[in-house]
Amino acid sequence: MNILAMFKPNRDAKHYPGFGAVGVLFFTFLYLPILVIIAYSFNSNRIVSVWQGFSWQWYASALQNEGLLNSLRVSLTVALFATLVATVIAVSAALVLERGQNVKHAKLSQGVVNLPLMLPEIVFAVAILILFSQLGIQSGMLKLILAHSAFCIPFAFLPIRARLQGMDNNLEQAAQDLYATPLVTFRRITLPLIAPGIFAGSMLSFVISMDDFITSNIVSGGGATTLPVYIFSLVKQGVSPELNAISTLIMVASLLIATPCWLIAKRSR
């Protein structure tokens, strides 16, 4: 075989020597810990690393754990509201920055919208903690929602802006040319066409909010603990098989949500 042909740029990577081995190694590294957690969540032994026999008991105890269910409720509520707020702000920002004419300080505004992406989260969290104490906000839930809304905005903004960029702005002009007011143009033309972007952006915000630990941990208090913060408190008491069951349940839930989203995204393309 010609050695040079191997490195032709258009050659399919699948045929590179060692592709299979590296691939197996990669997926093992990525998924083996997850498989171990799933397997041991069915372990009847209280000592996590010693297999005794199959059992559902940790699932039963997880689902009856008041603290766990409470933190799940907090996380879902926070994620829902934060997503709502972030998406509305992101859509507005994207419309102004992409469609507005003669917008002053457009570059700067874009930078501000995306700032939470560049800023180390710990800095953001401390800053917002100080702000809240200055404002005298007491409710833990409100603090969480406000903080999460703030750092979710760029995650909602980026897919929505990308969608607007890909959309021919002649379409909006055509609608106005055909007697549609700016508001009707938005509702009938712009909104349906950027809907996939809004969907992707809000999904991303939701996941980022559900997943957040640093900000939630620093801001929480006042009777609101999110799921990641609660799980971390469990870990500090030592890894229990119940934790494995909780992790497995979260994974299943994620898959159940992600699959239809993926299917919708695939179809709209």
Partner: peptide, 20 residues
């Protein structure tokens, strides 16, 4: 008058048909 109040219609260079 803004564009949507003018009794004038346009055929755009790239047609600009509403894809949805």
């Amino acid at each position: 008058l803004p564009a949507h109040q003018r009794r004038v219609n346009t055929v755009f260079q790239n047609y600009a048909l509403f894809p949805h």
